[in-house]
Design a protein around this nucleic acid. Sequence first.
DNA 1: AGCGCGCTGTGAACACGGTCACAACGTGAA
DNA 2: TTCACGTTGTGACCGTGTTCACAGCGCGCT
Lengths: 214, 214
Amino acid sequence: MNSTNHYPDRTVERLCTYRRTLRRCLDEGKPRVFSHELAAAHQATPAQVRRDLMTIGFSGSPARGYDVAGLLEYIGDILDPPDGTAAVLLGVGHLGRALLAHFTRDRSPLHVAAAFDITPEKVGASCHGCTIHPLDALERIVAETHATVGILAVPAEAAEDMALKLVACGVRGLVNFAPVLLHLPSDVTCEDIDITVSLEKVAYHARHAEPRVA
Amino acid sequence: MNSTNHYPDRTVERLCTYRRTLRRCLDEGKPRVFSHELAAAHQATPAQVRRDLMTIGFSGSPARGYDVAGLLEYIGDILDPPDGTAAVLLGVGHLGRALLAHFTRDRSPLHVAAAFDITPEKVGASCHGCTIHPLDALERIVAETHATVGILAVPAEAAEDMALKLVACGVRGLVNFAPVLLHLPSDVTCEDIDITVSLEKVAYHARHAEPRVA
DNA sequence: AGCGCGCTGTGAACACGGTCACAACGTGAA
DNA sequence: TTCACGTTGTGACCGTGTTCACAGCGCGCT
């Protein structure tokens, strides 16, 4: 378990979602959870949950389960940098606005620090509490806000350009909503969210599902 | 290769994206492609592409590659029902509106046939060319439009309820944007798109990426 | 016509994540 | 104090998806 190249992607993903359940437990005043409870709240088996917690090195106690507050903090230490994570949004179209609305509502250790758009008449305006900046302010604002991730909500044609601009500013993580593959340096992490593909996949599976299994 | 339970999810996903590249080839008047060209346009190796095409039973010719038009049609026969796929959208908030805008622009064999919302003042209005219906019209309209997939863009608290309503109407595929796990019958396919988790994952990986690899 | 290059098709090996099954152990009851 | 139950921690196993490596083959060049 060296310092670079940490935990597997799938495990990290589940950690993010375990947190939600743990927070709910905390809200409900539930001090301890069992692996099977966490498993039920996710798409997982108890063994999977235990394996994940083993992977990150968190121990529970037999017959009493895992300490909710302790686990929550432990996961937080893994996922969150001490000073929170700042993101910048590129492209304030329909999707960009929806994302801004989402992240101003959503309570999470992540916040969108600034938004950018090329359209001159959008620049200077504010959307869901976030000021829209011109593109040429990107480098300055990324530096000022210490943003480490970028959200690409721009048209497909502009996506790669914008991605490279972000990378040039030092951003090393991207979430890309444009339906194109971005060619990026290997030290940049990119998560593609392709709504059309997701829908087509689901439509396919829905057509070919067996009538009934369980 | 029985009729139910078809191709692996990952393969289907790549087929969706291969189509994009193939359409672009067609637009450019390129009649044939090699596996390494398709691979370069995706996150894949040439062997992966050949394996996918082998899986679906499409043959190319050595030294000339794959026929673009033929492959495009072949994939279309696999992915698209003969009469297209209709989807319904539940929840016309910020995200719902962005999705409507997206799908009225995007040319694909998929279209959003109707939108639904509980808010009385939204009902009856039209958004990006799509009429917003009241929830109690769901069953009728799903039947009329032969919608097979549902898009959930509702708050987390309402998601499971809405999902079950859709399933009761005969919908067997869901795309869920709400940050909760839906408990559904096993013959229903559900794809979760969780933007917060994606961002947290990317932020994590960005923090732990090795400084440079290739 | 013959040759060589470069592509496809595919069995075999590999890697990874997920699951099983069980030993170890703490807790609560008797 | 002792016992039995239920849960954790984990080595071994398994299945799936990806990659390797090479045989087979068609095209274009000479």
